[in-house]
Design a binder for these strands. Structure first.
Length: 213
DNA sequence: GGCCAGGACACCA
DNA sequence: TGGTGTCATGGC
């Protein structure tokens, strides 16, 4: 069966319900989590997130006051602690220019918010899109590994890296940021269930479907 | 003990 | 612009 992006999302939602991502008490917690989760698993990332919670309660001012050594110690369980600690410092320092006001960031920088995020050390394509979707409420398709594997299974060729898919997918205009968040969550939940091993995809409710971009 | 998990970056051609 | 090596940790 041929599916549009909207139809794919609706089918996944019908079969899987709400993804429940990203449960967090504050946007600052999501920012920290988005950096900690880079190329690791949630078990490791969450140890670092828990450390930030305990030491700063995700208060941006307290995070900014951490020394480099303190920051690296908090990040360490998530791996790549030098790069990730730089990223945390970079983005919270950057936010200070906008008085920690996410709406002000959008008003001042939109529509070049994404390219400004990419200038921050440690913020690449995927994390920038995660932040756009979950922090700045600008619905964006996140072409992460699971999305590329899924879309490959759905017939989209040559998905070798992030941009190879990202440049092909534009979410429909009526996609809310809540839907974009849920879509991303569902894609990754789907991947965890059906891509280990990949052959299980043939047992899934999307087997035989083809995506029309 | 190797492999993997929701990447990013420097360096190179 | 696109490909490759490197960065770190912890669980299985």
């Amino acid at each position: 069966m041929n599916l549009t992006i909207t139809e794919l999302y609706e089918k996944m939602h019908q079969n899987m319900g709400n993804s429940g991502w990203w449960s967090a008490e504050s946007k600052a917690e999501i920012i920290v989590g988005a950096i900690m989760i880079q190329n690791t698993n949630w078990r490791n990332a969450d140890k670092a997130v828990a450390g930030f919670r305990k030491q700063t309660n995700f208060d941006p001012n307290k995070i900014r006051q951490l020394t480099t050594e303190e920051l690296q110690a908090l990040v360490r369980p998530a791996g790549f602690y030098k790069n990730k600690s730089r990223a945390v410092a970079a983005i919270f320092t950057w936010l200070l220019q906008y008085d920690n006001d996410y709406q002000q960031v959008c008003q001042v920088l939109s529509p070049k918010l994404r390219q400004e995020l990419l200038k921050l050390h440690g913020i690449g394509d995927e994390t920038a899109d995660v932040l756009l979707t979950y922090i700045f409420e600008q619905p964006t398709f996140i072409s992460d590994k699971y999305a590329r594997v899924l879309f490959t299974q759905l017939g989209v060729p040559n998905l070798t890296n992030y941009q190879s898919l990202a440049k092909q997918v534009k979410l429909p205009a009526d996609f809310t940021s809540t839907a974009a968040q849920d879509f991303h969550g569902l894609i990754d939940e789907f991947g965890k269930i059906y891509f280990h091993p990949l052959t299980k995809f043939q047992e899934s409710f999307l087997a035989g479907d083809q995506l029309i971009l």
